[in-house]
């Protein structure tokens, strides 16, 4: 029954990748496959390019952290085959307490993953190795309070309300442009030296 929902994909995955397919379940009618983090990129590429699988559409890419601190963090790929009209959810588990959370990027497979991976990086602090431009996307570049969707992040933010107000008032309104934008217009060297230094330090939101 599990295989029928996505037309034998789970069996095909097991025979192609063996031990790298850790587990498969069905949740509320959706087929979920857990895979080895190291092999995830190869598996995703195989799913996209193998005739008969054709998971050519990355519906969504996100991450999940559970309330139970023992449970691993999950990176979730919602895949779809537009031709076969089937969906598959692929999950990678990461140890939540690891110093550096990282997985391989899939921007080389799906360009649509660009902003999605940036959002996961912004919200969860997961690094996507090989991403061409891994910066924060919803929070500002120098946001210093951490990654908001982690369970360790309190609903009202890491800093006190007084500190948040202080930082907002102290923010440098001249720093409207990022270093990157100024250097591409070759405008950086025309700024006063002290402003160049402040921009380089990322004055907006920096904490002592």
């Amino acid at each position: 029954m599990i295989a029928d929902a996505v037309g034998g994909t789970v069996e095909a995955l097991r025979s192609a990748f063996g031990d790298a397919i850790l587990q498969d379940t069905v949740s509320c009618g959706d087929t979920v496959v857990f895979v080895d983090p190291g092999k995830a990129h190869a598996i995703l590429q195989w799913l996209r390019d193998t005739p008969g699988q054709d998971f050519n559409y990355l519906t969504d890419l996100t991450a999940v952290e559970y309330r139970d601190p023992e449970r691993p963090l999950e990176v979730v790929y919602q895949l779809r085959s537009l031709e076969r009209r089937v969906d598959l959810r692929l999950k990678i588990q990461l140890v939540a307490t690891a110093d550096r959370l990282s997985v391989a990027t899939v921007t080389d497979l799906w360009q649509g993953a660009d902003w999605l991976e940036r959002e996961v990086f912004d919200m969860f602090g997961i690094h996507f190795e090989g991403h061409p431009d891994l910066r924060r996307i919803l929070m500002w570049e120098t946001y210093a309070e951490g990654h908001p969707l982690r369970k360790s992040f309190p609903l009202r933010g890491q800093f006190s309300r007084a500190e948040q107000v202080r930082q907002a008032l102290a923010a440098n309104p001249e720093a409207h442009y990022s270093m990157e934008e100024l250097s591409l217009a070759e405008a950086l060297h025309e700024l006063p030296v002290d402003m160049q230094e402040r921009l380089a330090k990322g004055e907006r939101g920096e904490v002592e």
């Binding site: 996100t62 919602q78 969707l149």
Partner: peptide
């Protein structure tokens, strides 16, 4: 919910 994810069509469409 432990996690409520919105798959935002406008966000993804804008990324192009």
């Amino acid at each position: 919910p432990v996690r409520w994810r919105i798959r935002p069509p406008a966000f993804i469409n804008l990324s192009i």
